[in-house]
Amino acid sequence: MNIKPLGDRVVIKKVEVEEKTKSGIVLPSSAKEQPQIAEVVAVGAGITEDEKKKDEIKVGDKVIFSKYAGTEIKVDEVEYTIVKLADILAVVQ
């Protein structure tokens, strides 16, 4: 199933990152705060058709988004978040 965001919305998938403590203990993503870095999965037509916005973000970009932004959904056992373009703070290069 494909998700097609409407207007100026973006579908993102959070990047799962395991973290090690200084003593070498691996902390799984479920044991810590949710990541704020995600990969763009789909971009709405309101962004792709706007001359000013279309170059800001594209599918495949890694982005940093606001902590409590968006609506979380689960499709085919994969969790996605739908956010407005304004909730995306930066593109990670």
Rank of each mutant, 00 (worst) to 15 (best):
N2M: 04
N2E: 04
I3M: 02
P5F: 00
P5V: 00
G7I: 00
G7R: 00
R9G: 00
R9D: 02
R9E: 03
V10W: 01
V10P: 00
V11R: 01
I12Y: 01
I12D: 00
K14T: 10
V15M: 04
V15K: 07
V15R: 03
E18D: 08
E19P: 02
E19I: 14
S23M: 11
I25V: 08
I25R: 14
L27K: 07
L27N: 02
P28F: 03
P28L: 05
S29F: 09
S30D: 14
K32A: 05
E33S: 09
P35G: 12
Q36I: 06
E39R: 11
E39Y: 06
V40Q: 05
A42E: 14
V43P: 01
V43E: 03
G44P: 02
G46M: 05
T48R: 03
D50A: 10
E51S: 10
E51T: 13
E51Y: 10
E51N: 07
K52I: 07
K52Y: 09
K52Q: 06
K53F: 03
K54H: 14
D55G: 13
K58W: 15
V59F: 07
V59G: 09
D61L: 15
D61S: 14
D61Y: 08
K62T: 14
K62M: 12
V63E: 07
K67Y: 04
K67F: 05
E72Y: 12
I73R: 07
I73L: 14
V78Y: 10
Y80N: 10
I82T: 13
I82P: 06
L85R: 04
D87M: 11
I88F: 12
A90K: 13
V92Y: 04
